[in-house]
Amino acid sequence: MSSDTTPRSGPDAGSEQIGPVVEETPVPDPAQDPAQDPARDPNQGAAPDPWQPGAWAERSRADRRRRWQVGGALLLAVVTGTAATVLVTLPERTDVPGLATPNDGRYAFPELTLPPLPVGASAPAGSELKTHAADLRALLLPLPADAVATTPSAAPSASPSPSASPSPSPSPSASASAAPSLPPVAGRWIPCDRDAMLATDDAYALRLTTDACRGAAAQGWTAADGTRTELRLFRFGSGDEAADYFAGARTMDRTKDIGATRLDDDGVYPIAAGQADVRLSEERSGGAPTGSLCWLQSGDVVALVQMTNPHGVPAQAFRQVVALQSSLLA
């Protein structure tokens, strides 16, 4: 047994180890292991070398594809927006689904125009006496759309009393030198009598003579809903005579088409000028009166508006007719 404890030296000195042996893991060289290159994504393939032939061409193609995709999306949005705008603006608002307004009974009248005045005459608004110098028939409302005329007003005569004897057709030279014809008018001339004011007796018709009615014109139609409208215009010598006639006519509580009536104290009727008196029939259907009556006075003219329907007169249509007839007389 040797007692030599001198440490060994030489080549064999490291062959013996005291304690457990720890093996060292070699550190990989990034230059030799491309997978450990921190500049590369391990989830993707090898990054293209920008200096390799074709790398710039590939990047250019990708940029062009991206630009085409963005441009196509913008073009699609513009085309879609333009098409939607055209579809909404081209038709009438009431024809667009979801925007249609329910019909409340009002009529579709043609564009209203005032008749021409005689030379030197002024409109009622500019006249001190508030007189109407225009053709009385042309101051009546025209027929609304889809209405059927109940009076022969398609070809009215140019004068209150048409000639009884027919005249020969004028020659072309005479027609060329003749004065231009009057524009078409809405109504027709009628005599100042009981039928003109739709009265049931002569008690009220006599006032036409007392207040010196100078002329009367009539218009009438039946609308698509069955409502019948009768319009009458009476011209007097002055505003005072018209006001006196209006005061008596407004007390007429019934007509040949409407039975007992009552004053409409609660209704609101937009009157352009003058005064108005409205009566509604006692008979009703579905909550609406079967007859509505309005007397209007504007200057030297008194107007009568009567509307009847066994199923009830539409309130909006009656207000519309009264307002428009009043505006033509203002």
Rank of each mutant, 00 (worst) to 15 (best):
Q325H: 05
G291H: 01
I190H: 00
T6R: 13
N103R: 10
Q275H: 08
R8G: 05
V302I: 07
D265T: 11
A178M: 11
R59D: 12
W189N: 04
F109D: 02
L304W: 01
D202W: 04
S281L: 05
P42V: 06
N103Q: 12
T150N: 09
G126M: 08
S181A: 14
T94V: 06
G286W: 15
D29T: 08
A272Q: 11
A100M: 10
D95H: 11
S2T: 06
A147V: 02
A55Q: 11
L280E: 06
A108K: 05
T6A: 09
R250W: 06
E24P: 05
A247L: 13
L231I: 07
V70P: 00
A243E: 08
S153W: 01
D104S: 08
S167N: 10
D146T: 09
V268E: 12
V22E: 13
S177I: 10
S157D: 15
R319Q: 14
T25S: 15
G274Q: 06
Q44F: 15
R207E: 12
D12N: 12
M252Y: 07
S326Q: 02
A145R: 14
V148S: 10
R250G: 04
A155W: 07
D41F: 01
P183Q: 15
A164T: 04
V301W: 00
A249E: 07
P310S: 09
P102I: 02
L206V: 11
Y204I: 08
S127V: 04
A108I: 10
A247I: 04
V313D: 02
